[in-house]
Design a protein around this nucleic acid. Structure first.
Length: 356
DNA sequence: AGGAACCACCTGTTTGCGTA
DNA sequence: TACGCAAACAGGTGGTTCCT
């Protein structure tokens, strides 16, 4: 009897080549794709700068004085947070190559601290969505349009769940369940939960049907069940005849269309046909920005506006910081306070009690 | 400090429509 | 028939911000 291996595991009896490949795959899996991409691009930039010096300098290993000059050359033009990220990338490159990192040199640290103090910046903030904003965004939406129904559910669930756009698109149909109090949302993994322990959060019914996330989800679910699906984009031998609309597969109410692993929010083309794959996180950002623009809302709207709006609104309405942090899955209060500070300029203002 | 996500801009893909 | 255009989305890349 052979013990079955977990998915992705390599047999102890695998060849040296297979093990070598697996080592590389696991090492790559240690960090997110986005992180590796940033490291690659940062180090390439540094290497190019080193190569352009006269005489050319070594980028790996790099001398602390060279790195200090590199940072000074970009001070002011780049935000201090960006320079710090560049340093992180350079440190990782040195660590992986077995070299001591110049970023830990005292001179480099001092120079970076000086740049931070000289070029202080405040982070750019996106607009925070309020319930009134959401109501304005809902007005033009047509309940009969699958696309509008999807966007309605996406915006309201994103807001009520304080979800990041990456969390929103990672939701599957099985992650969202209905009970007597509202929707239960299972967030399988996220930025602040890298080991994927998962969290369940409850979204209660809204008092206003127009902005109720539960009703919005149910309406979108009906479209998921009954709207036609688009033909697969590639590898389809029965190509559509030119000049005629692609028929799509009719919505039959077949329960297999609603497999628990299917993405909760999928693409909808302009004929209302549903795609198979989940939306990309960038599409969420685009949807938020476009719907806010269509509603004529001022300010800079982005995917994060939903999460930020949740924090501001919930705090202003009297929710405790503990409840806020639990629901929004913040692990440090300082991050969350950054969102709510501007919203509380007048609501909890001690100058009103100064007797002036 | 380090890791992960977000954002903007650009390009590419697929499918159908309108027009010369 | 050819071509440009539009809609809806994904992918690439450089840069910035968030969170622990």
């Amino acid at each position: 009897m052979v013990t079955p291996l977990p998915p992705g595991a390599v047999s102890p009896a695998a060849s040296a080549d297979a093990l070598h490949a697996a080592v590389g795959e696991y090492a790559a899996a240690a960090r997110a794709v986005n992180t590796w991409r940033a490291y690659r691009s940062d180090h390439a930039r540094f290497a190019a700068w080193c190569g352009a010096q006269d005489p050319p300098e070594s980028a790996l290993p790099a001398a602390p004085v060279v790195l200090a000059r590199y940072l000074v050359a970009h001070a002011g033009a780049r935000r201090p947070a960006t320079l710090a990220r560049w340093c992180s990338s350079i440190a990782v490159a040195h660590d992986l190559a077995g070299h001591p990192s110049p970023t830990r040199d005292e001179q480099v640290r001092t120079v970076l601290a000086g740049i931070r103090r000289t070029h202080r910046t405040r982070p750019a903030r996106v607009a925070a969505a309020s319930p009134d904003d959401l109501r304005a965004m809902m007005i033009p939406l047509d309940p009969k349009s699958p696309r509008d129904a999807r966007d309605r559910a996406l915006l309201l669930i994103g807001f009520a769940g304080a979800l990041r756009r990456s969390e929103l698109v990672a939701l599957t149909l099985g992650d969202i369940t209905l009970d007597s109090d509202g929707l239960r949302i299972f967030i399988a993994s996220s930025k602040t939960d890298p080991h994927a322990l998962g969290h369940t959060r409850g979204l209660s019914y809204g008092s206003d049907p127009a902005t109720c996330p539960v009703r919005a989800w149910q309406a979108w679910l009906q479209h998921r069940l009954h709207s036609p699906t688009a033909q697969p984009a590639t590898g389809d031998p029965a190509r559509t005849e030119p000049g005629r609309p692609a028929p799509g597969r009719p919505g039959t109410g077949d329960a297999s269309r609603l497999l628990p692993a299917a993405g909760a929010f999928v693409a909808v083309d302009r004929w209302g046909r549903l795609g198979e794959a989940a939306l990309s996180d960038r599409s969420v950002a685009r949807i938020v920005a476009e719907r806010a623009d269509a509603a004529g809302l001022p300010g800079h709207w982005a995917g994060h506006s939903l999460r930020r709006g949740f924090a501001t609104t919930a705090h202003a309405s009297g929710a405790s910081e503990v409840a806020l942090m639990r629901h929004g899955r913040w692990r440090s209060s300082s991050s969350m306070r950054g969102y709510i500070d501007e919203g509380t300029v007048w609501s909890d203002n001690p100058t009103r009690r100064l007797g002036l």
